[in-house]
Amino acid sequence: MVEQSLYPNYPKDLEMVITTNQVNFFYGPTQALFDISLLIPAKHVTALIGPSGCGKSTFLRCLNRMNDTIPHSRVEGEISINQKDIYAPGTDVVELRKEVGMVFQKSNPFPKSIFDNVAYGPRIHGEKNQKRLTEIVEQSLQQAAIWDEVKDRLQANAMGLSGGQQQRLCIARALAVGPKILLMDEPASALDPKSTTRIEDLIGELRTNYTIVIVTHNMQQAARVSDYTAFFYEGRLIECDATPKIFTNPRQKQTEDYITGRFG
């Protein structure tokens, strides 16, 4: 299945949770992704980097089928999570998205209380027990390292939080559903440096329990938070390797040009 020769720097016993094979993606007549074959290891952080418009966000949104909502879009090829083809007919998108959480570039809390934001996911999936909900909310907020800041005002409107707090609340909201995989689409690009550091620290803590795929524009950030890095350019996957290898000794000329700042 996996050609070890393509990933010489990956440990042999690395468990792969997401595998994609020859994935093409189209927005109407425009092709945005070309033959993407990528492996994403479990319980590690994989960064997707590349210049704007290179398809990294499109690829990320294929992994929880968020692209389904875009009219006239089309996916070809195979994307499997835990050996199950997520685009196979009859796939339950609700189950998929419970398994694969997502954090967006711009924090998007609901105009509801902090508690209701985090409880939203469990509630729509049928959790009615108030005690259990309270537990889930507390646990998720703690995991997202925001509990201490909001524990005294869980009933306050989430829109009153700062940008960085809102983003961590969104992470808590995603965790409350109990996903195994977390997709992050430039989660810190709209935040100040201090909030960015907090999010990066949080990613470092979450990697022990979650498989994280993060899209980032910021190469230092990719170098800091990720174990593996995939470089996208013009809709193609140019190179994927262990992060230190990509940043010190990439195999492809284009990768080297990008990370040394010659374009992008």
Binding site: G101, K106, N108, Y120, R173, A174
Partner: peptide, 22 residues
């Protein structure tokens, strides 16, 4: 905002749940 609907869908909410709850 589309961002709110997307947030709801990404949490596994159905289309109708998103309409009535968000």
């Amino acid at each position: 905002p589309y961002a709110l609907k997307n947030a709801s869908l990404a949490l596994g909410a159905s289309h109708l749940q998103t309409i009535f709850r968000v």
